[in-house]
Design a protein around this nucleic acid. Sequence first.
DNA 1: CCTTGACCCTCACGCGACGGGAGGGATTAC
DNA 2: GTAATCCCTCCCGTCGCGTGAGGGTCAAGG
Lengths: 177, 177
Amino acid sequence: MQYTIGELARLARVSVRTLHHYDEIGLVVPAARSGSGYRLYTTKELERLQQVLFFRALDFELEDIRRLLDDPAFDARVALETQRTWLRERAEHALSLVRLADLMDAGVSGSDPRAAAIAEGMRLHIDRWFYPCSREHHARLGDMYVDDARFSATYDRIRPGLAAYVRDAIRANRGAT
Amino acid sequence: MQYTIGELARLARVSVRTLHHYDEIGLVVPAARSGSGYRLYTTKELERLQQVLFFRALDFELEDIRRLLDDPAFDARVALETQRTWLRERAEHALSLVRLADLMDAGVSGSDPRAAAIAEGMRLHIDRWFYPCSREHHARLGDMYVDDARFSATYDRIRPGLAAYVRDAIRANRGAT
DNA sequence: CCTTGACCCTCACGCGACGGGAGGGATTAC
DNA sequence: GTAATCCCTCCCGTCGCGTGAGGGTCAAGG
């Protein structure tokens, strides 16, 4: 079976430009060219593209994907483990930013109206972020991850300590400057 | 108090190049230039830079930071609301990828990681997990990272069940196609 | 046979937040 | 005096494509 670039793009739900790019960097190269220069792909390239897209979904860099698929000595399992660590760090970072938002909440309880507005918004955020729950997916996934009581308890336990930490940090910072 | 660009860079722990960049885009502009063209900053600019770095830590775009600091009519609350949504989605996404990596790990443990498992993982990824998983659910999952020990415990507890679920899903998926 | 529209091609610039280097002048310390 | 260290202004590179510009190719219908 042969595909033109547009057909392959529709099949894999990527843009034609993306396939151009993958050709340029040697990630997914067409099996042949037609007389008039059209790229011609076969099911082999479709499969390869699927693999690429899978790893791309895990936020691998394209260059790493190329090595992973081309080098038979490359250990896929190790790569996955590395990537998972990576992703977990990213999640933690994002969540640390949420904590930073908490920091603002506790820190700017004073004078500046802009800061006050920010604090307001942050509080709103916290309520939306930590408390709501989706019953639909609670049902779908069962109680694999979700445990309401424990969840609330964790947050309630952390929050006062966090506020205290923030106040101290701010005082320390003020003293230093 | 006056600072050269290098001094300010050390104080704020950013690179000189970063300060060049912030000057170029009008985000932190030096108070004056010396006769020989050196950038001269005062404590005012240092304070502004601190604010910039704070919002940068929340992953605001520089252009948004500029508007936020310069335009008194700019609605900080709306900006923060947008930003929170953003951050939340990022955390959710990263966590969904962690789970996807887990799926791979579970699916790969048997045969050849390259071909079959990847294809199955991909299908599973698309059909069963990636699209239907709700954002709210991910958000709740995210909170577990607030407490590392507890999260680990939870994670270890659910992991065998997850692997089993994956195997079943793969079988079911095979039957369907 | 000719046109129309859908497809395909190759450049090549643009993004965001800088990193890094080239090529040169200024200042400071000894 | 001179060497080390600072500073300046371009300007190209990153990463994964999006989005044109400017132009060939192909199947179908009049």
